[in-house]
Design a protein around this nucleic acid. Structure first.
Lengths: 238, 238
DNA sequence: GTCTATACCCTGATAGAC
DNA sequence: GTCTATCAGGGTATAGAC
């Protein structure tokens, strides 16, 4: 907490970040406009550009502000688990809880803002813009590497390639569940009875599902498509 | 095939639809522009509005063109399975294959265009715009109702609410896996060795994962958070 | 019926006064 | 550091030529 910035400045930046978080969450990156963000934040349009330089940079700032602490926490929890295990492989459920549970817990403990960010994360992982992919890739590199390694050790009988795919699927189920916590209900037209504390009810259900998927029996043939009519599994590799 | 429209007209409409499919897939709804679509299609900017009325209507047309036949096929396959079962409940794996397998198979048999559409579907399910939700809700209503019922019968020991949630998660894992079939690889920075026939390798892996998740053991306590340090499961209900 | 040209608005971004 | 005024470009939609 140096005093390179005045208290007033910090407030402005913070207000812009908070407003941007909400607008990006509600409208997506393309759908959001700097004007609306500035309006919601109660600041001038130019303030956003002054403090962050561009819309892209603002988006990255919004993302990193919470994503970084989330991923640091994920690393810390994993460190703790591995220290306690003293060299023994962790249980898959421990690893999943450290990765996905930490995410959900953070959203709960951070109140409504945390939920907003959680949904922003869910949406963002599906946005394919180049710069977003770059930003996420950088931010996630260490964490994914560590967790990937932990899963390899935890499931030595499962081919690594399969674990990677399943991590992929788990990420998808999670971001989708999070992003659509109030959206998908309309698509599917199902009343899940959820009202306000969706997150606390979501967590255990999601974790069970993920664990079941991760530990599922391997697909019939290791790398061959299902026995159907027109398979084309000729590889081009020599 | 009446001749209310000339062959040339049909080509224009088709070209616009094909171009729109690609652009919407690549940029999302908000990110796509009518100018780019018209450019890719080799038609004038106004042609899109003439043939479809608006950007929203064009998007719906792109969606429904293939989504409708997909969902009809899903219903047909389910009918067939249930007829063959003669009143007995289906196996969960059959139901999942009818729903998700049909999707993946359609993408394969329709060639590169099918893959483009597949990814568009994946992206679209995460778009929160009001009109998209409405369109999807209408298009999916029957299919989801039928498959939901089939799953209830197939898994009588699992609470219905839980099945609904897990269907939700499966949709997420699938759309994400599909939408990110070449996107996520960059985020995760993993080489999965996949090149061209990702889809055929994806299908069996995904199906195993989904089935494992669907059949996972139920969460410990029906509606209580996991036993952790700082649980706050005091409900506000009286 | 089909396409061309254009209108009109909103976007992100900037320069310069305060 | 903050704000006003403005820019150039791209957004959707439409009036009117063929």
């Amino acid at each position: 907490m140096t005093e390179t910035v005045t208290a007033d400045t910090r407030d402005t930046r913070q207000r812009i970040l908070d407003a941007a978080e909400g607008v990006f969450m509600a409208c997506g990156y393309d759908g959001a406009s700097m004007r609306q963000i500035a309006g919601d934040a109660g600041v001038n349009l130019a303030a956003g550009h002054y403090h962050f330089g561009s819309k892209e940079a603002l988006f990255q700032a919004v993302l990193n502000r919470r994503l970084h602490v989330l991923n640091q926490e994920r690393l810390r929890v994993l460190d703790e688990l591995e220290a306690k295990a003293a060299g023994a492989p962790l249980k898959p459920s421990q690893i999943l809880d450290a990765f996905f549970g930490t995410l959900l817990r953070m959203a709960i403990t951070h109140g409504p803002r945390g939920q907003t960010f959680l949904r922003l994360i869910g949406r963002t992982l599906t946005e394919p813009s180049e710069f977003i992919r770059t930003a996420l890739s950088k931010e996630f590199a260490d964490v994914l590497e560590r967790y990937k390694a932990a899963l390899f050790r935890a499931l030595p009988e499962v081919p690594k390639e399969e674990i990677v795919w399943r991590f992929h699927f788990m990420l998808g189920a999670t971001s989708y569940a999070i992003a659509g916590i109030d959206t998908l209900r309309l698509i599917t037209d199902w009343q899940t009875g959820a009202t306000d504390d969706d997150l606390e009810r979501l967590a255990p259900r999601l974790m069970s599902f993920l664990l079941g998927g991760l530990r599922a029996p391997l697909p019939a043939a290791p790398a061959a498509p299902q026995p159907r009519g027109n398979v084309r599994n000729r590889r081009k590799k020599p």
